[in-house]
Protein backbone atom coordinates (compact mmCIF):
# COMPACT_ATOMS: atom_id res chain seq x y z
CA UNK A 1 0.00 0.00 0.00
CA UNK A 2 1.07 3.58 -0.46
CA UNK A 3 2.10 5.70 2.41
CA UNK A 4 4.64 5.80 5.15
CA UNK A 5 5.34 2.88 7.44
CA UNK A 6 5.71 3.89 11.06
CA UNK A 7 8.58 2.45 13.03
CA UNK A 8 6.61 0.56 15.66
CA UNK A 9 3.26 -1.18 15.63
CA UNK A 10 1.20 -0.34 18.70
CA UNK A 11 0.38 -3.55 20.51
CA UNK A 12 -0.61 -2.29 23.97
CA UNK A 13 -4.10 -1.67 25.32
CA UNK A 14 -5.91 1.59 24.62
CA UNK A 15 -4.96 4.27 27.16
CA UNK A 16 -7.08 5.08 30.22
CA UNK A 17 -10.02 7.42 29.75
CA UNK A 18 -8.77 11.00 29.34
CA UNK A 19 -8.64 12.89 32.66
CA UNK A 20 -9.26 16.50 33.55
CA UNK A 21 -5.52 16.87 34.12
CA UNK A 22 -4.81 15.46 30.65
CA UNK A 23 -7.21 17.97 29.13
CA UNK A 24 -5.54 20.85 30.98
CA UNK A 25 -2.12 19.70 29.78
CA UNK A 26 -3.31 19.33 26.19
CA UNK A 27 -4.85 22.81 26.29
CA UNK A 28 -1.47 24.18 27.30
CA UNK A 29 0.21 22.40 24.39
CA UNK A 30 -2.44 23.76 22.01
CA UNK A 31 -2.06 27.31 23.39
CA UNK A 32 -5.65 27.47 24.62
CA UNK A 33 -6.88 28.76 27.95
CA UNK A 34 -9.91 26.83 29.17
CA UNK A 35 -12.24 27.92 31.94
CA UNK A 36 -13.42 25.46 34.60
CA UNK A 37 -16.69 24.84 32.75
CA UNK A 38 -14.87 24.23 29.49
CA UNK A 39 -12.44 21.84 31.19
CA UNK A 40 -15.31 19.79 32.60
CA UNK A 41 -17.22 19.75 29.34
CA UNK A 42 -14.20 18.87 27.18
CA UNK A 43 -13.09 16.14 29.59
CA UNK A 44 -16.44 14.40 29.23
CA UNK A 45 -16.85 15.06 25.48
CA UNK A 46 -13.30 14.11 24.48
CA UNK A 47 -13.64 11.00 26.64
CA UNK A 48 -16.76 9.95 24.74
CA UNK A 49 -15.18 10.59 21.35
CA UNK A 50 -11.99 8.70 22.25
CA UNK A 51 -14.03 5.84 23.72
CA UNK A 52 -15.75 5.49 20.37
CA UNK A 53 -12.29 5.05 18.82
CA UNK A 54 -11.55 2.12 21.15
CA UNK A 55 -13.11 -0.25 18.62
CA UNK A 56 -9.96 0.31 16.57
CA UNK A 57 -7.96 -1.58 19.21
CA UNK A 58 -9.92 -4.74 18.40
CA UNK A 59 -8.75 -4.74 14.76
CA UNK A 60 -5.93 -6.96 13.62
CA UNK A 61 -3.52 -4.39 12.23
CA UNK A 62 -0.44 -6.58 12.30
CA UNK A 63 1.66 -5.91 9.24
CA UNK A 64 -0.69 -3.21 7.94
CA UNK A 65 1.21 -0.17 6.67
CA UNK A 66 0.09 3.30 7.67
CA UNK A 67 -1.40 5.62 5.04
CA UNK A 68 -0.66 9.32 5.48
CA UNK A 69 -1.95 10.37 2.09
CA UNK A 70 -4.30 8.77 -0.46
CA UNK A 71 -1.87 8.83 -3.39
CA UNK A 72 1.83 8.06 -3.79
CA UNK A 73 3.55 11.39 -3.46
CA UNK A 74 7.15 12.12 -4.16
CA UNK A 75 9.09 15.30 -3.80
CA UNK A 76 7.81 17.66 -6.46
CA UNK A 77 10.58 19.53 -8.25
CA UNK A 78 10.32 22.57 -10.46
CA UNK A 79 12.74 24.66 -12.47
CA UNK A 80 14.42 27.35 -10.43
CA UNK A 81 12.67 30.26 -12.12
CA UNK A 82 11.92 33.42 -10.16
CA UNK A 83 8.24 34.37 -10.05
CA UNK A 84 6.63 37.40 -8.39
CA UNK A 85 6.04 37.07 -4.65
CA UNK A 86 3.08 38.42 -2.71
CA UNK A 87 3.19 42.18 -2.35
CA UNK A 88 4.98 42.98 0.92
CA UNK A 89 2.86 45.96 1.84
CA UNK A 90 -0.37 44.10 1.05
CA UNK A 91 0.68 41.22 3.30
CA UNK A 92 1.78 43.52 6.11
CA UNK A 93 -1.48 45.47 5.83
CA UNK A 94 -3.29 42.38 7.16
CA UNK A 95 -1.13 42.15 10.29
CA UNK A 96 -2.42 43.30 13.68
CA UNK A 97 0.79 45.28 14.32
CA UNK A 98 3.85 46.06 12.22
CA UNK A 99 7.07 47.95 12.78
CA UNK A 100 9.65 48.84 10.11
CA UNK A 101 8.21 46.35 7.60
CA UNK A 102 8.16 43.55 10.16
CA UNK A 103 5.48 41.79 12.18
CA UNK A 104 5.56 43.23 15.70
CA UNK A 105 4.77 41.14 18.80
CA UNK A 106 4.80 41.81 22.55
CA UNK A 107 7.92 40.83 24.52
CA UNK A 108 8.69 37.14 24.01
CA UNK A 109 10.53 36.40 27.26
CA UNK A 110 8.02 37.88 29.65
CA UNK A 111 9.57 41.19 30.65
CA UNK A 112 6.95 43.98 30.79
CA UNK A 113 6.58 46.18 27.72
Amino acid sequence: MNGVTVATAYVGPMPERISREDVARIAQLARLTLGDDELDRFTSQLGDILDHARDLAALDLDGVAATAHPFPLRNVMRDDVATPSLDRDEVLAAAPEIESHMFAVPPVLGEPA
Partner: peptide, 8 residues
Protein backbone atom coordinates in the same frame (compact mmCIF):
# COMPACT_ATOMS: atom_id res chain seq x y z
CA UNK B 1 -0.70 5.52 13.98
CA UNK B 2 -3.61 3.11 14.46
CA UNK B 3 -5.98 5.40 12.55
CA UNK B 4 -3.50 5.65 9.67
CA UNK B 5 -3.46 1.87 9.42
CA UNK B 6 -7.25 1.79 9.38
CA UNK B 7 -7.02 4.25 6.51
CA UNK B 8 -5.04 1.60 4.64
Amino acid sequence: ATAQKVRT
